[in-house]
Design a protein around this nucleic acid. Sequence first.
DNA 1: AATGAAATTTTTGGGCC
DNA 2: GGCCCAAAAATTTCATT
Lengths: 159, 159
Amino acid sequence: MDELDTAILRQLQEDARQPNRAIAQKVGIAPSTCLERIRLLRQRGVIRGYHAEVALPALNRSVQAMVAATVRPLSREVVAEFERSVSRLPEVLSVYTMAGSDDFLVHVTAQNIEHLHAFLLDRFTERREILSFRTMIIYQHLTNQVLDPLPPPSDSVTR
Amino acid sequence: MDELDTAILRQLQEDARQPNRAIAQKVGIAPSTCLERIRLLRQRGVIRGYHAEVALPALNRSVQAMVAATVRPLSREVVAEFERSVSRLPEVLSVYTMAGSDDFLVHVTAQNIEHLHAFLLDRFTERREILSFRTMIIYQHLTNQVLDPLPPPSDSVTR
DNA sequence: AATGAAATTTTTGGGCC
DNA sequence: GGCCCAAAAATTTCATT
């Protein structure tokens, strides 16, 4: 992970479909070198994949909410089963498993408020392991598409 | 947004770098047709972009947290400025602007717990508009990379 | 490791159904 | 709106440094 890898990663996070030739030019290396670097980044698992970003309203998903849920018992089995089954629901964008007073934060989308309400009644109210949940409407969700490496933890330089 | 568009979108969300020819074959159309569909999806803004997904530990981001913050006054100016400045911090992955008892949820990453703590003390404690914040550690974050359109709101069929 | 050029594959666009 | 086909462009490989 040198400066070159970082620059290449930045490009691929910004636009994963731009030609290898364009990336090579921007970071100042030959296309073949760039391609080899990208191949290694993928092989080492630094790049996990390439995904299209889709506008949620175009998918009839104009309403977003964060659902904070607590489950009981908080056992390995119940946690794993919650993660698995909830993350597979079509309305669910992501599941955060948390330390704190809420066990999970579930980022969900629906066509509108009525559908959101119906979804929660159908999929959350009925679940026996869910002790309680709170729903918070999301007005806006801003995402940082491009992430650079953070400076290594100071331990790794001093020791 | 017919079945074909949905199938193409699914492919591009799964792997945005697979050749157009491969997508065409999987959804059962000619490559030129597929390319034209993709071009239109982009033009209509359904596809917002293509991004590489990067492993957070490889970027020295092994710790994730959700920070729930409340600000005062909750004016248009303060909200906009919070969104703008906080989303630009390198540790911040995304900012959710919320309805509810918390005004924002901020998804942050750091090298480790010590760096997370330092980041919060440096960037949150000092801010004058932040009334309070709570930090919740994230054990795991599962994401649904592939989203299909939800069925259109029932209004649009009956009326 | 990086380069440059050759071989292969993919994308692109016009004409036709 | 979709398909076929030829030209253009991009990717990939590999011998060389």
